[in-house]
Design a protein around this nucleic acid. Sequence first.
DNA 1: ATAATAGTGTCTCTCAGACATTATGTG
DNA 2: CACATAATGTCTGAGAGACACTATTAT
Lengths: 268, 268
Amino acid sequence: MTESESEFLESYDPRDYDPVSVTVDVVALTIRDGELHVLLVRRGHAPHAGMWALPGGFVRGVRDAEDLPDAAVRELAEETGLSAKQGPLERIHLEQLRTYGKPGRDPRMRIISVAYLAFAPELPDPEAGGDAADAAWTPVGRLGLTDGGDQAPGTTRRLAFDHARILSDGLERARAKLEYTPLATAFCAPEFTIPELRAVYEAVWGEELHAGNFHRKVLSVPGFVESTGTTSDKAGRKGGPRPKLYRAGDARLLHPALLRPSREEEIR
Amino acid sequence: MTESESEFLESYDPRDYDPVSVTVDVVALTIRDGELHVLLVRRGHAPHAGMWALPGGFVRGVRDAEDLPDAAVRELAEETGLSAKQGPLERIHLEQLRTYGKPGRDPRMRIISVAYLAFAPELPDPEAGGDAADAAWTPVGRLGLTDGGDQAPGTTRRLAFDHARILSDGLERARAKLEYTPLATAFCAPEFTIPELRAVYEAVWGEELHAGNFHRKVLSVPGFVESTGTTSDKAGRKGGPRPKLYRAGDARLLHPALLRPSREEEIR
DNA sequence: ATAATAGTGTCTCTCAGACATTATGTG
DNA sequence: CACATAATGTCTGAGAGACACTATTAT
């Protein structure tokens, strides 16, 4: 760094630059009982006290400055009691979703929110903590989301701020990522069966898949799953042979991809 | 809003919440002479004065609060002299890329940068303005980007901050989007020929495509292009029949997609 | 004339989807 | 036993890629 740059830095006051606040919000998804669930917290403070919202909060910017993904995990842990480094959040997959910064999206002030998307295997029930008055896994089907990202009237859990839109974007991202990445395995235990994997796809895409074709297709994609050589100790609840067990393979992209059936509507 | 919420808002000081500054940076791409170019500006002030960087700057957060895409277009216009509402930037396609917020990415202070990706048809040379000492379309091939998003040593135009990484992410996004969206048409004039469209794909993907197969494929995707019924008045520079002219169609997604050949390396 | 190009046709291989079949478990 | 399920097999049609061919233009 040059001399003039050091001088410059000393005379620099960040607050001259019209600062805004930055938050992270997390769309955490999991599968429970064959249904896709999202982690929601009930807000303990204004604004929107009492409403349900995505877990999230302010990024520590200067004091104890933290990276954005770290902030996402911290807020997730604080508000839901799920411990981060060891325990439930250990095997979580986290990726950035997108950033929401429309003026007026928060009534307090100008807030830019960086949204993250998390995929988790089945986790225990959360416990409210931090600013949250309550926390719970909620079936996304009961939130009445429209294609436009709004909530249908009469929905029991109305989401605060623009969180319905963020959730909607997160769901679409999740649906798309199942097509061309092995991310569905992030919803499964370390060892899983092909029918379990199919249940993940069916829950996220919201439509039933042909069991036979799905099976053959998964095994034909190089690196998607690898055999453990073992067999599950229990069959399906309605009988049938005991399925074989698999692990996630080393592929980062699925080729060929597993495309969703019937998306003619979305093309135009 | 309840009584207590109004009280709450009045007692609220945003600066209690450890504010950070937010910038937008723009990866603006275009095709010139069959080669992919990115718009760069040379920094007029510290830090990194004299180095090349992506156009961008601080978001107006509170006074004249602006939406993030508006900030991106404004910075683009200010630093390059390309006028926004009418003129060169009129037909530009803009989308959010991702957000970069690692502590220390800017030596001044904690800065969160929301990066945007812009696709433009061939534009005039920019003129430096605002904080920029210079501005120019630069062939991305000469920036020596590695797969990891770094720049090879000896590259003439070293990029400031983490802009090499941002550019690298933007290029990968552009390459991927050509596969399943009709975005290549955003690089073309309102009326274009199939060989021109193919030149866009070849420039962005960096590999030659089979002319015959590409032609048939583009026409077979519903809504990708629609015929104007007219024919170009000039042939290719080395002869051949005069190609027919097409417009962008109404498809938002390409089905089936035009997949890149030979990406075996990227799968694992 | 030579060479490059636009556009179309043909062939093969892969893959998705519909359907069938067999073995194996539950109730 | 009746029935659902795991896993595999078969068939068909769509599509990608390789190659060939004709017509048209620049040099």
